[in-house]
């Protein structure tokens, strides 16, 4: 017996490798759609808030409420509630493709709020200077707000990616697959502590990698 088999007698390594791949696919797919939906939503929140470029307090109130509601629902419940929606969009209710819909709906409002906060950090004077130069709101968003808040946006993306790792693991419980599913099925339900240990260790490594990539990018783009 090899040392690996001695230490972790129950583990089927190819299955672990497949689960890693599934987790990465779910993470990549859901992160992509979270950014695509959350960034405009965050910009919209920022622009419509009181005292901002396109202040519309009532619209802001509605957007803010929707974001808060989606953020308050525990992700595990959101997943189950969204099964009909998932089925309508993807044709399946579980699996990797099925998991991406609730992951995005759970994470996009969270990311949007972080985007809004990052944009508020941009110096108002710089926005005023751009207005004084005759910039349109669109130009202010793309040429001033987003570039100026780039370190904050990267940090927001990192936090969101890490949160998504946690969500994908939860998704495993309702049949999404991935490392979380293994931890739950074999580690928890099947009383195989070595499965629990290996899957959790892999998740820790994944989070560490995401965080250090994020930190490095923030460092590279910080000019203050």
């Amino acid at each position: 017996m090899s040392p690996l088999q001695t230490l972790f007698p129950n583990i089927d390594w190819p299955e672990i490798a497949q689960a890693c791949l599934d987790t990465l696919l779910m993470l990549g797919g859901s992160l992509l759609f979270t950014l695509v939906l959350g960034l405009p939503l965050g910009v919209w929140l920022f622009l419509t808030a009181r005292g901002q470029l396109h202040a519309k307090p009532k619209l802001y109130g509605v957007l803010s409420l929707v974001v808060n509601v989606l953020r308050s629902v525990p992700f595990i419940i959101l997943m189950i509630l969204l099964i009909p929606v998932t089925q309508a969009i993807t044709g399946v209710s579980i699996g990797i493709r099925g998991a991406i819909v609730p992951l995005v709906i759970g994470a996009a409002p969270f990311f949007a709020r972080l985007v809004e906060t990052a944009l508020r950090e941009v110096d108002r004077g710089v926005i005023e200077a751009s207005q004084a130069m005759g910039a349109t709101t669109g130009q202010i968003v793309t040429r001033v707000l987003l570039p100026e808040s780039r370190p904050g946006l990267i940090a927001a993306t990192t936090v969101t990616a890490v949160a998504l790792v946690g969500y994908t693991a939860m998704g495993g419980i309702v049949g999404a697959g991935g490392l979380g599913a293994l931890a739950y099925q074999y580690g928890y339900n099947g009383y195989k502590p070595d499965y629990m240990l290996v899957t959790v260790a892999l998740l820790v490594v994944l989070v560490q990698i995401l965080q250090s990539i994020g930190d490095r990018l923030v460092g590279r783009y910080s000019r203050r």
Partner: peptide, 20 residues
């Protein structure tokens, strides 16, 4: 309005340059 503003330069106490 934007054309009018393009014809009027402005400088500020805190400079308001784009840090990026």
């Amino acid at each position: 309005l934007r054309r009018l503003r393009a014809g009027i330069g402005m400088i500020f106490q805190h400079f308001n340059l784009l840090s990026s």
